[in-house]
């Protein structure tokens, strides 16, 4: 049995989650703490993947990064960086579609650190960066971690958008969910069952531990 889809899924999910945890954390801090022009619009755009069909999302990504767009052309010609029909495309799809699942709990956790507590630190002479490092993040880390776990789980299961932008190239861009689809289509019940089992067990474990881990005293 070919285990490449499992390997690729793990690689794509981890990479996408790294993006989510870094870029997403900055976005979560920005949205939780600052008021700026277009904040509402930004939130709506980030949340879109929760409500639009994955194929539509995939279509947007394809149009954005494909050779026919100037961004895609620039990346390919100047940076030598191809997104469409590569595993990087799968990362982009996983990142965009898992971002809202990270943002919601992370933002709630950051907002949940009381204003008085942060003001108390300010009044004690601490800079904004020190407060973030010693007060806000240590108090919000459970929510942030829950967001990371949710985003990771969502990234491993990404199907529609991935299929659109990365395609279904066995040994190159075929992730686990796509391999399952393929196996069922070809009547290969054995492979389908095993892959389904793997992904079910994995998702179950992730949520189970996320749930246990994020319950705490603070």
């Amino acid at each position: 049995m070919d285990l490449f889809p499992l390997y690729l899924t793990i690689k794509v999910s981890i990479t996408a989650t790294l993006f989510t945890a870094s870029i997403g954390l900055v976005l979560a801090l920005l949205i939780a703490k600052k008021d700026f022009f277009g904040k509402n619009l930004l939130e709506v755009i980030i949340m879109q993947p929760l409500v639009i069909p994955p194929t539509v999302l995939g279509y947007y990504l394809l149009s954005l990064f494909g050779r026919s767009s100037s961004i895609g052309k620039f990346m390919e010609d100047v940076l030598g960086f191809q997104i469409v029909f590569t595993w990087k495309g799968a990362v982009v799809a996983a990142f965009i579609s898992s971002l809202p699942l990270f943002l919601t709990p992370a933002r709630a956790a950051i907002e949940g650190v009381g204003k008085d507590i942060e003001n108390a630190a300010r009044l004690l002479g601490k800079s904004e960066f020190t407060i973030l490092r010693t007060i806000t993040l240590p108090l919000a880390w459970r929510g942030i971690l829950a967001g990371i776990v949710m985003a990771f789980a969502r990234a491993t299961g990404e199907f529609g958008a991935t299929l659109m932008i990365a395609g279904n190239i066995p040994g190159l861009t075929q992730t686990l969910p796509i391999a399952i689809y393929d196996a069922v289509q070809m009547g290969d019940d054995f492979t389908a069952n095993i892959l389904v089992g793997i992904i079910t067990l994995f998702s179950f474990c992730v949520l189970y531990f996320a749930n246990r881990f994020t319950r705490g005293r603070f």
């Binding site: 008085d116 507590i117 003001n119 108390a120 630190a121 300010r122 009044l123 004690l124 800079s127 007060i135």
Partner: peptide, 16 residues
């Protein structure tokens, strides 16, 4: 705020 050197005691303590 951090440079004002003002001490402030909150009603709900605001302990870390």
């Amino acid at each position: 705020i951090r440079l004002r050197k003002i001490g402030y005691l909150f009603q709900d303590y605001a302990l870390f």
